[in-house]
Design a protein around this nucleic acid. Sequence first.
RNA 1: GGUGGGAUAGUCAAGUGGCCAACGACGGCAGACUGUAAAUCUGCUCCCUAUGGGUUCAGAGGUUCGACUCCUCUUCCCACCA
Length: 399
Amino acid sequence: MINEALREIDRGSAEIIDNERIEKLLKAYFEEGKTYTVKAGFDPTAPDLHLGHTVLLQKLAIFQKYGARVQFLIGSFTATIGDPTGKNITRKVLSKEDIIKNISSYTTQAFKILDESKTDIVYNDDWLGNMSAADMITLASNLTVARMLERDDFSKRFKSNTPIATSEFMYPLLQGYDSVYLKSDVEIGGTDQKFNLLMGRQLQKAYDIKKQQAVLMMPILEGLDGVQKMSKSLGNYIGVSDAPNDMFGKVLSISDDLMWRYYELLSDKSLDEIESLKKGVQEQTLHPKKVKEDLALEITSRFHNGEAAQSAKAEFEKVHAKSQIPTDIAEFRVNEDIWICKALVDCALEPSTSQARRDIKQGGVKIDQVKVSDDKLQLSSGEYLLQVGKRKFAKLKVN
RNA sequence: GGUGGGAUAGUCAAGUGGCCAACGACGGCAGACUGUAAAUCUGCUCCCUAUGGGUUCAGAGGUUCGACUCCUCUUCCCACCA
């Protein structure tokens, strides 16, 4: 039993620190029914979760299956301060109202995966917000500048002359202090969080907590491009609340190599099953497209339902494989004759008439399946099916 | 506080008085090809009913026939020194 649980917990993880602690916690659970806490921090600045986040959530759900209470920590304190320098652009400082608004949509999405009855949502400004300057200094004395600079991204930024604000030095300390306050038994996070996660252990020790938290790090999920990490700002993400058609299509668009990564981190299939799929593809008994479709179906059903996933699949085949017209097309109407370029802008198919002209010149615009060659075309009354590229459609009715 | 360097389109980054709507890279869009919205190749990539017009190079002024380029002030950033 314990071994099985450990295997599931270990699956896909990049690194586990203090695995023994986890073993002991599981043992206590299986033998005495003792629960324990697993902490994971989330940043409420972006209201939309994507699959990169769900890698962690799925891991948390596994822990819940084996006796854990999840401490779903919202970094409400850190978010109100804002990250002053970040990369190039100052991160927006969020007001409390914004955060609260973000969080409710955040948690609704999260509970598609997590067991709500085994989850405690906690906000770190409950304890960090009341810290005095003296408390802060005490906390800060636990960390030397040299040690701080060892942190990978700080040292990189330091070397490349990218600014580092002093307040950023506080982040790992504050995050670590969260673990002190919550007395977490385990904390999980991405590999990029290693420094902060370890800080939790160090601070727990400094603040006389007997057992330090075990740390489990999950790899960072690559985005659709297969190179950079999945993030909303890079636009290479699959959002938890993406429409079924988008979700399905996006999964299918990943490369064959990346597909295995997604299988490992996102699928509920066992590692053995995945291995045999891989073998099938290698031996050419299985078509990679089929395997990818199955993954797309699994993921789409998870966030929507089986039926929606199947129809997304049908829709995808219709539009792409057979290059037919999708079922749902936005409709627009205008009351007088309209210039084609203007019409494309009005239907939100193009950002500007200039861009519309260019696309017409390149043969990227179709009306009723026929290429448009005249960029001065006037549309008089009637109904038109406008198309830009392969996947942007709109119906336009001119009176 | 002192000294020096910097701010150019979605991003990075050329351009040091007219040849600049501004090289290049990435991204994005379109075309071809494909099991795919992948890879590859090609074209495009400020706005405007447009063989032309308008607005751009941190902001505000100035010099000049003419400024991204020179001058002044302002804002922000970086480095070194203290």
